[in-house]
Structures are given as structure tokens and as C-alpha cells.
Amino acid sequence: MAQHTPLYATHVAAGARMVDFAGWDMPVNYGSQIEEHHAARRDAGMFDVSHMLALDLAGADAKAFLRGLIANDVAKLVEPGKALYSCMLNPDGGVIDDLIVYFLSDTSYRIVVNAGTADKDVAWIQQRLASTGTQATLTVRRDLAMIAVQGPNARTKTWAAIPGSEAASNTLKPFQAAAFGDFFIARTGYTGEDGFELTLPSEQAAATWNALAAAGVAPCGLGARDTLRLEAGMALYGNDMDESVSPLDAGLAWTVDLKDPNRDFVGKAALVANGARRQVLGLVLEDKGVLRSHQKVFTAQGEGETTSGTFSPTLEKSIAMARLPLGVAPGDSVEVDIRGKRLKARVVKASFVRNGKGLI
């Protein structure tokens, strides 16, 4: 039986089209997916992301444990509320999950993991805690809801909807969070736009959602969230990386920190031994058609594959992220197998739209 977020009844009452996503009943849209996409690009849209899971790690060894658990280095986090994006790897260097870690103190961190991998992630972390004898406790926070408010007017409308929140969050820099009463307000997102991700007690979720709607924030579903994140060149677990793919081959080398030769982490030896064998670049289709995931790409350097693809509402072009051979570069022409036909595409950097503006 599918799980329900604290906002399930709110979505159903609003007429949302509900679909199964990673075992959760989630809204894919409330009407026009294109209009929801444009709302987040041009004004403000909100997304129920309560299916994702917050984990609190606390204890004397919390920092040392995380330095060995993930590929990025939490030692660079020194300012309370500062966030870090990273991948958690298996010993072969494959990605168990991509996640965000928030620094609260040297002995306290919040980790946000993906819905589809949440149970696996918790089991892996608990196993690592036990096997390393770490003095730290992991608390699973299913008592919390999460709402992402995204778009050029997202912060202003959030402040209007949640009285007093402006004073607590108006000085936040990107990838930084602050507490406001029961709320945890993070200036993060998955759309390529400014905004907040709000973590709050489940029982306050519906009232907060309705207050945001009254302030002019448009409810948006998973469909718009996917086209927005792909336009921004943001990876999706299960499409753009998984346990068989190294972050070095998934366009996520920037999330791997190898600066400290004395820091070891799970998967490090495999990354160092194998290096990068593929690269992630963007594609813009020049013929008529639609790029989707897992389509074969033909280049002068050999074959590659699209990992995520869609029609971009902002650019009005079909775009994709693709894992390609080393040596392919932006500006190159390639061909993509779409339903048995080789269609022409142009290689670009794997970021198509940011802050409402096209980059290609």
C-alpha cells in the first residue's frame, strides 16, 4: 500500500492527479504541468517533498563518522546551518544516494536523503555506525514534513505567508539554513531558482501549505519538478546515477573532496584507482522529436547514453543530460537513436536554465 505524506488530503482536495512515486502517493500535477513549471521559473511555486527523509545524527563522533561516510568533506562546514551536497558511496565507488548534510554543530548534523533510497540509506548508515563503534545516534524524523518554495518571488511570498520568518532567514546565503521556531528554513532547492526548503512538524504542514497558497504561491507537482531540475542540470538518483555509477562518471566530481590525503571514506580507493571514465554533458535536439532517458548517443569518440531527457518548457526545445565518452566537448554534433532513427543533437554544458534565463 502506498504511503501518504501529511499533505495527501490537501492534494486530493485540490484535485491533484496522484501517482505512485517510490512507494508514495504524490501529486504529478494540479492541472497544467507547463503552467506549474512557468510559475516556479517566473514567480513562485511550491512542492510537497515530505516523501524525502530527514535524519538527525548527533554524538561526539558525528563529524568523524560523516567524514568517512560520504565523498565530500563535512570538515569544511564551520558555520551553523551551512549545507553540503554529497554522495554516499559503496566500496566500489557507486552511488548509494545523493544527499544534503546540514551542519548544526561539530556533534550535530541533519541529513536529507531521497525517498526511493531512504530505507536502504538508513540501514547502511546504521550498519556503518555499528561496525565502526561510533559514538553517535541516528534519529529518523518521519515526524517532519517538507515543503519546497521555489522561484524569483519565493522568498518574499514565504515571508508573507509565515509571519516573523523574514527576520530569521533574510540574511541566509545559498546552501545555508536557520531555525525559526519549529521551522528549519533552508535556502536550497532543486529547480535552478532561488527559494526555500521548509522542514516543519507534520501537523503544521497543511496550514502552512494553505498560507503559502493564499500568499500567491502556486501548488506544483512532480512533473514540473522534474522538468525544472533537468533544465537546471541537476541529477536525479536512479536516472543519472545509481550504485553502478561513480560520481566521477555522473558529472558529480565536484562533490568529491580528495584534498586531505589522511581522510579515508567509503569508495575512495575505487575512485582513485578508476578515475573518470565517462563525462556528463547536455544535449539539445536539433531535429524533431523528444529526448528521453536511456537513448543511445553516437559520437566521434564512441557511443554514450542519455540519462534524463524531456521537452524544456522554458527553452521550447528537447534537452537531455547524457553520459558520454571522454573527448566529446560542447559544440560537437552527435546523433541520438530515437525510435530507431538517428536524430541530430548539439552538445552543450549540462546546465540549460538558471534563475529564469536560458544558458544555451
Rank of each mutant, 00 (worst) to 15 (best):
T132I: 00
E305V: 08
L172F: 02
L99R: 13
R323S: 12
I96Y: 11
Q126H: 10
L291E: 07
L57I: 08
K317C: 05
F180A: 07
L198G: 05
G304M: 11
T310V: 12
A13G: 05
R141Q: 10
L172A: 02
K173E: 13
N210I: 07
S308V: 01
L285G: 05
R354T: 14
M1V: 10
T117M: 13
G68N: 08
T171W: 05
D61Y: 02
V280E: 08
Q295C: 06
Y30C: 05
K259M: 10
D92W: 04
R229P: 09
S108H: 15
S333T: 15
A276M: 04
K82M: 12
I185N: 01
G133H: 01
S131M: 13
L258N: 04
D20K: 09
G93H: 00
F184E: 12
S318K: 11
V328T: 13
N274P: 00
L258S: 05
R42H: 11
F352M: 04
D25E: 14
F184W: 15
T10A: 14
S308C: 04
T208E: 09
E79I: 15
R278C: 05
D73A: 11
R263Q: 10
T158V: 10
E193K: 07
M46Y: 03
A232S: 11
A145M: 06
E193V: 08
I162F: 05
L271G: 01
A350R: 07
G181T: 02
Y237T: 04
D43E: 13
V113H: 01
D20G: 13
Y8A: 01
G223F: 03
V122K: 03
A60C: 06
A214K: 15
L57S: 05
D25G: 03
G358T: 03
N355L: 14
A22T: 03
L138T: 06
L138K: 03
G275W: 04
T191E: 00
A40L: 06
K82E: 14
D97C: 12
A160D: 14
K120P: 00
G267P: 03
D106K: 10
Q279V: 06
M146H: 02
F175E: 13
T188R: 04
G340R: 03
A215G: 11
L271E: 01
M26T: 09
F47H: 13
K268D: 07
G251P: 04
R323H: 05
N153C: 11
A130W: 04
W124F: 15
T208G: 09
C220E: 07
L291V: 07
L7F: 04
L172R: 01
W124E: 15
A64F: 06
F196W: 02
L53G: 05
L69M: 04
G238D: 10
M241K: 00
A273S: 15
N72L: 02
A320Y: 06
L200M: 03
G221W: 09
S244K: 14
A276K: 02
E36P: 01
I125A: 08
A322S: 07
V348K: 03
A205T: 03
D56K: 13
A273F: 00
L291F: 07
D287N: 12
A214W: 06
G289C: 12
Q33K: 07
L222A: 11
T314M: 11
T139F: 07
S318W: 09
L55I: 02
I96E: 12
F180N: 04
G251Q: 02
S312M: 08
A213V: 15
A75M: 07
L222M: 12
A207W: 03
K259A: 14
L283N: 08
N170F: 10
G304R: 09
L144K: 14
I162P: 01
